[in-house]
Nucleic acid binder design. Structure first.
Length: 266
DNA sequence: AAGCAAGGCAACCGCTCGTAT
DNA sequence: TATACGAGCGGTTGCCTTGCT
């Protein structure tokens, strides 16, 4: 038995939204909110639309502070860099671009940035390399000189097993893991899940990804042209080892060698 | 000016995940 | 613990616009 449809498709309007429908939806949401259910909202608001369609229309076009089109070079850089590191996680990428939606970012990527990116040419200042490991889930890492991490920088980090990003501060002390930060709050996790950063966080677009892994401490990516470096540290060194077992940070490029040496002296 | 192809983008589809029961 | 259901997400479609011949 298949799953029940979310709405009566024979009795809902489809296609482009009219200005009247926009006004009705916007007015209703500003007065009442979603009421906890998008599915029930169209009936309450007097709209002959699917609840999912209402949600999409609100999130992508009607909610306050939406910015459409006109992507800046800086935004292009962030999109390219994050795509290289986390792939097509459009909601996460859009969350780093104030006023942008996942749909808008996705469309911008598909129509403009993708060609530049995979052509192996510069993508608005970001160097890329051809993926020589196709079919091997190999993630290309980027050289992004302006965002080379420095002591005290705030970082955007992520955890691949739970898909959230938390604000953290890089520490560069001899013989110490290059990472510390506040334990992610539950509120931050849930807010970020909705694409809203609950507190200010300076984002370094090179997007250090923190993920669980084996206990490997230091392994070199195989692309000689790029010298991407993966560095790691053992959980014993980390004050939040009860949150994350073995962690590693990826994304350092060749010009970060001094940083790596500083963190992991032989 | 007309026809066609390509580009751009809004909207839909269907899947996964989280939560309530 | 299992099931049902809604929310959220990424992939895809299809329509409209733009540019070229």
């Amino acid at each position: 038995m298949g799953r029940a449809p979310c709405c009566d498709k024979a009795n809902v309007k489809r296609g482009p939204w009219s200005p009247e429908e926009d006004a009705t939806l916007k007015s209703y949401l500003q007065k009442h909110g979603t009421g906890g259910s998008w599915i029930a909202l169209p009936k309450k608001a007097g709209l002959k639309r699917c609840g999912k369609s209402c949600r999409l229309r609100w999130l992508n076009y009607l909610r306050p502070h939406i910015r459409l089109g006109g992507f800046t070079d800086d935004e292009d850089k962030i999109i390219c860099t994050l795509y290289a590191n986390i792939g097509s996680r459009w909601s996460l990428i859009a969350a780093q671009l104030p006023g942008r939606t996942d749909n808008d970012v996705k469309n911008h990527w598909n129509t403009k940035l993708k060609k530049k990116f995979f052509a192996g040419n510069s993508c608005n200042g970001i160097e890329t390399f051809s993926n020589k490991h196709e079919g091997n889930n190999y993630v290309p890492f980027l050289t992004f000189s302006p965002q080379t991490p420095h002591q005290g920088d705030d970082f955007l980090v992520g955890h691949k097993d739970s898909d959230y990003f938390v604000p953290c501060v890089l520490e560069l002390e001899q013989n110490k893991a290059p990472f510390s930060g506040p334990k992610p709050l539950e509120s931050q996790v849930s807010d970020l899940g909705n694409g809203v950063m609950s507190e200010s966080c300076s984002v370094i677009p090179c997007s250090m990804e923190v993920s669980s892994s084996s206990s490997s401490l230091d392994c070199l990516a195989e692309n000689k042209d790029y010298h991407a470096k993966w560095v790691g540290f053992k959980h014993e060194d980390h004050q939040y080892d009860h949150v994350y077992d073995d962690l590693f940070i990826s994304g350092f490029a060749s010009h970060d060698q001094n940083l790596i040496n500083e963190c992991f002296p032989n």
